[in-house]
Simulated scan of single mutants.
Amino acid sequence: MRSIWKGAISFGLVTIPVKVYSATEQRDVSFHQVHRKDAGRIKYKRVCTVDGEEVPYSDIAKGYELPGGEIVVLTDEDFADLPLSTSRRIDVLEFVEDDQVDPIYFAKSYYLEPDGTGSKPYVLLREALEQSGQVAIVKVALRQRESLATLRVRNGIFVLETMLWPDEIREPDFPFLEEDIEIRKQELAMATSLIESMEGEFDPSQYKDAYREALQAVIDAKIEGKEVAKPEAEEGEEPAADLLSALRASVEAAKKSRGEKKPAAKKTAAKKAPAKTAAKKTAAKPRTRKSA
C-alpha cells in the first residue's frame, strides 16, 4: 500500500507521527467509453463556453456560481491561504462510547501506521483506547477538506473513519411517518419469529459480489471468443395472499434453508394422551375395591 498523507495524532501534549492509507478499495469492473463501430476510445476536450477554445488543465480553476449566474473564480492560492489548523494534525477532541456514534455519519476508512519514532506513543494510545472501550472523536483535514472523524482500534491498527458534518445528514420527511398504521399482534409475533429464525454470526467471507463475478465471466468469454452463457433465471414464488401469510411462509423457508425440522407438536400430544387415560384407569381401581 502507498500512504496518501503524513501527519500526526495530537493527543494532549503527546504527538504521534503517522502515515495514512486508504483502508478500502472498490472492486468494480471499470470500463472506457468507446465507439461501438471500431472500439476507438472516446475523448473529451476541455472547451471554454465563452471563446470556444480548448483550455489546458493548468489554466483551469474552480468556479462558485452565484444565484444570479455570476461566477466567482477561486485559484489554488485562494485554497492554500485558508486557515486549516488540522493541515498536518489529527486533533483528538474527546472520547465517547462507540454506540453513541450513528453509522450514518461514516464516510471513508483509513489505516494509520506509526511513522519514524511514533511507534511507542502509538502503541500506548492504542492500548489505552482498547482498555477504555471507547473511540476518539477527532478533526482532520484530508485533500483540502476538514472533517470530523472517529479513531478506533481494529486488529492492532488505528482506523480513522471520516464523518459527515451534522448538516450534511438529510432529514427523512416521508408522509407515512404521519400515518396511524395499525400492526396486529400476530403480525408482530410472526415478524419477530422470522428475525429469530434468521439470526447468525456475521461472517463477511460467506458473501460475494455475484454481479461482478457474472460480469467478469462475460468479459472472459468474449476474450476467449466463446459464446456468452446466460445465467438461469430464478423461479419466482407466488405472492402471498396477505402479510401474515407472507411472514409465515418466510419463517418456514428460513427454517428449511437452515435444515431445521418443524416441531412435531401433534405427535407429542398424541403420545401423551394415552398416558393420561391410563392414569385415570389406574386411579379408578382403588375406589372400586373400597366400595366392595
Rank of each mutant, 00 (worst) to 15 (best):
R2V: 11
R2N: 14
S3G: 05
S3P: 12
K6E: 14
G7F: 04
G12Q: 05
V14K: 04
T15L: 15
I16T: 02
V18K: 03
V18D: 04
V20R: 01
E25G: 00
S30R: 15
S30G: 01
F31Y: 15
H32F: 14
D38H: 06
D38T: 06
D38V: 03
A39W: 11
K43Y: 03
K43T: 05
Y44L: 12
V47W: 08
T49P: 12
T49K: 14
V55Q: 06
P56Y: 03
D59E: 15
K62L: 11
E65T: 13
L66C: 06
L66S: 08
P67H: 08
V73L: 12
L74T: 06
A80R: 11
D81F: 01
T86Y: 07
T86A: 15
R88Q: 09
R89V: 04
I90Y: 03
V92G: 08
L93V: 15
E94Q: 08
F95H: 11
E97C: 00
P103A: 06
I104R: 12
Y105K: 09
Y105M: 07
Y105P: 05
Y110M: 03
Y110P: 03
Y110E: 01
P114H: 05
G118E: 01
K120I: 14
Y122I: 04
R126T: 07
E130V: 12
G133F: 13
Q134P: 00
A136S: 13
I137H: 04
V140M: 03
V140R: 00
V140I: 14
A141N: 13
A141F: 03
A141H: 00
A141W: 00
R143N: 09
E146A: 10
E146S: 08
L151K: 02
R154M: 12
N155L: 07
V159C: 03
V159T: 11
L160V: 05
E161L: 09
L164W: 13
L164R: 15
E178G: 14
D180L: 11
E182A: 07
E182P: 00
L188F: 13
L188C: 02
L188D: 03
L188Y: 06
M190F: 02
A191I: 04
A191H: 11
I195C: 07
I195L: 15
E199H: 14
P204A: 03
Y211S: 07
Y211W: 13
R212I: 07
Q216F: 08
I219D: 08
K222V: 10
K222D: 00
I223H: 06
I223K: 08
E227D: 15
P231Q: 01
E232F: 01
A233C: 03
E234D: 08
E235W: 01
G236W: 05
E237H: 12
E238D: 13
A241Q: 11
S245G: 15
A246H: 02
S250K: 10
E252Q: 14
R258M: 06
G259R: 04
G259Y: 10
K261G: 06
K261C: 04
K262G: 10
P263Q: 14
A265W: 09
K266V: 15
T268N: 10
A269L: 13
A273L: 06
A275M: 08
A275T: 07
A279N: 07
K280M: 09
K281Q: 14
A283R: 09
A284E: 06
T288R: 15
K290L: 07
A292L: 10
